[in-house]
Amino acid sequence: MNEQDKHIVPTKTFVSVWIVLLMLTAVTVTVAKADLGAFSTFTAIMIASIKAGFVLWYFMHLKYEKRLLKLLLLVPIITLAVIIGLTFVDVWYR
């Protein structure tokens, strides 16, 4: 039981994260209007991943979890990266 008694995240932290997420949303909408050519998709994915990181780290409490859980998250991420990477090797060099 004692392990669940730790780390009540302060309201201020959550509200700050929310404001950052809203600002990043504004950035990604604004950047999408500017024509960055080949970089526009890359930029959109990067901003989305930063937002996802904030949601995982604070809202989903990962910052305060044990190392095991943090490392486990790498399993689906690496799996996906490998699947997508290998698929594109096939798509591009077929």
Binding site: T28, K33, A44, I47, V55, F59, M60
Partner: peptide, 26 residues
Amino acid sequence: LENAGLYWHLVDLIWIYLFPLFYLIT
């Protein structure tokens, strides 16, 4: 409640990627 919250945040997480990929293609 915490687990239901995790599920809800995941729904948010997926939308974070869906939004630029469908609405913001330039």
